[in-house]
């Protein structure tokens, strides 16, 4: 019967722990997931905007049709559609960089705090792993895998639950003729998805690294000692 058992490795270890500590894992995943969904939302709308107004002045007038006054706003800068598009692109990049950095920084700060508390609470677990012969690298691997799993779940959640939500909401509001931010059809380029995914996982793993790092140089005996 034991032969049917799936192999036990750091990923299954991480999943077992996330399941066991469901409240905390859910909190982290939701915080991160919302952050990523927000970034996907804003950037998809911006990409949508660029897509709609690229190319011709006619498109710019379509925009004016959707949002009255928008053309005069751009005219202030006396831009043609093409120039507008170029300018929008660089504005888009800047906007994305700034908002993504701020939003990610807040989410990661929350995640770092949560992980630091979690690691403190799991000091004796680290002590046990060290006492049964794990090297610091192996302990690190377990925790970093957990960070990567959290990042992946949050990202996939945001992508597969958040994205359809964004697209449907936008379609619904455009159909109803609502203006506001949803005047464009959102566009989510694959590159953007890949970049945000890679960024999420890199950042969750490095946050976990920062939270665990200082606990690895400590003697196992110290880690096993009940705190307080």
């Amino acid at each position: 019967m034991s032969d049917r058992r799936p192999s036990f490795n750091s990923a299954t270890y991480a999943l077992s722990h996330l399941r066991h500590d469901l409240f905390r894992s859910t909190t982290i995943v939701i915080t991160l997931g919302l952050t990523i969904a927000f970034i996907l939302l804003t950037s998809s709308l911006l990409f949508g905007l660029v897509n709609e107004i690229s190319g011709t002045d006619e498109k710019a007038s379509i925009l004016e049709g959707r949002i009255p006054g928008s053309l005069s706003m751009f005219e202030e800068f006396r831009l043609t559609g093409n120039e507008l598009s170029e300018d929008s692109k660089s504005a888009l990049v800047n906007y994305l960089l700034v908002t993504s950095t701020i939003v990610f920084a807040v989410a990661l700060f929350i995640m770092f705090n949560t992980m630091s508390i979690a690691v403190q609470e799991r000091r004796s677990e680290i002590g046990v792993l060290r006492s049964v012969g794990f090297s610091s690298k192996e302990v690190m691997k377990i925790f970093l895998t957990e960070g990567a799993v959290i990042g992946t779940i949050s990202f996939l959640g945001a992508l597969f639950l958040g994205t359809p939500f964004i697209v449907n909401l936008a379609a619904y509001l455009i159909d109803r003729g609502e203006s506001g931010i949803f005047f464009v059809q959102p566009v989510i380029p694959l590159q953007l998805v890949v970049i945000i995914g890679a960024l999420t996982i890199t950042l969750t793993v490095s946050t976990t690294y920062l939270a665990i790092r200082k606990n690895l140089g400590v003697d196992p005996v110290e880690m096993l000692r009940p705190s307080g």
Binding site: F8, S10, Y13, L129
Partner: peptide, 27 residues
């Protein structure tokens, strides 16, 4: 000092988790 999130058999397997050969039968 067992790992609370792991099952009995996983706890037994912990020390050899990173070994290539994991003798689940032995655990």
């Amino acid at each position: 000092n067992l790992i609370p999130s792991l099952t009995a058999i996983e706890n037994v397997l912990v020390p050899i988790m990173f070994e290539k050969e994991k003798p689940t039968r032995k655990a």
